[in-house]
């Protein structure tokens, strides 16, 4: 991306200030009902109260473990399937478009079936999140291993590399950046879909709490939860971003 200057930074700052200012003004003047948009301070107060409750931390824990399980399953399945498919050119040609095509259909469609099969507890969310994250990971694994140019492999073989050597020193390093991209995309999809699953239908977790406070019309608490999610995801994005940069620059 282009270098940002003082002027472009000011525009970004002005945008954030505008949003915050509009929120303040709209709520202070009472031009919007507190039910739809509570005052910033009451949201902050609600957030402060929230983080002191044990139920907050148990909800966060539920969501995090769900995401962790789903993501672990997606990585293992995605990489295994992806790698297996690339072992044959024909399999790649046949299966890659199927996975890519399925991925353009929202897996959310099938969410009611996950509930049917795995119940309303965390199991259905794990399965749903894992299924959703499976696709980008598998697709990127396929891309990573099938785009390896034949001449590099031939070159390695001509230098007398064993097939393990070839994998370790040619195939893997070449594939790693794409694999990591797949995992990153998979992670955020996993995060969003677990949250979405909890919101639509569940008994615990962050998503459930957002939906529940909405049902009870406790807007301040709902906004507090939303703010928590947004802050978490922005932080996660930044962490993953710097982690990826770190790996690439090695």
């Amino acid at each position: 991306m282009e270098r940002s200057s003082f002027a472009t930074r000011s525009v970004q700052f002005a945008f954030l200030a505008l949003v915050a200012g509009a929120w303040f003004l709209a709520t202070e003047t009472g031009s919007i009902s507190a039910l739809f948009l509570p005052r910033p301070l009451s949201v902050y107060a609600a957030l402060e109260r929230l983080v002191q409750t044990a139920s907050f931390w148990s909800a966060v824990l539920v969501t995090l473990t769900t995401i962790a399980k789903a993501f672990a399953i997606a990585i293992i399945a995605g990489i295994l399937v992806g790698y297996a498919v690339t072992r044959s050119k024909l399999a790649t040609q046949v299966i890659e478009p199927v996975i890519a095509g399925l991925f353009t259909v929202p897996i959310t469609l099938f969410f009611p079936m996950f509930i049917l099969f795995f119940g309303i507890g965390t199991g259905s969310k794990v399965a749903y999140g894992a299924t959703y994250a499976f696709f980008p990971i598998a697709l990127n694994t396929i891309a990573a291993f099938s785009n390896m140019e034949q001449r590099y492999l031939s070159a390695a073989r001509s230098m007398g590399a064993s097939s393990f050597d070839t994998f370790r020193h040619v195939l893997l390093p070449g594939a790693l950046p794409v694999l990591i991209t797949g995992m990153r995309i998979g992670f955020f999809i996993c995060f969003a879909s677990v949250l979405g699953g909890e919101t639509i239908s569940s008994v615990a977790g962050i998503g459930r709490n957002i939906a529940h406070s909405a049902e009870l019309m406790e807007s301040a608490r709902m906004y507090a939860w939303i703010c928590f999610v947004i802050l978490t995801s922005v932080t996660l994005n930044l962490m993953v971003y710097s982690f990826e940069n770190h790996i690439r620059s090695r």
Partner: peptide, 12 residues
């Protein structure tokens, strides 16, 4: 931003 977090709000 994971937009699903805003779904209940959008419905509201």
């Amino acid at each position: 931003i994971p937009q699903v977090a805003l779904l209940p709000l959008v419905i509201l």
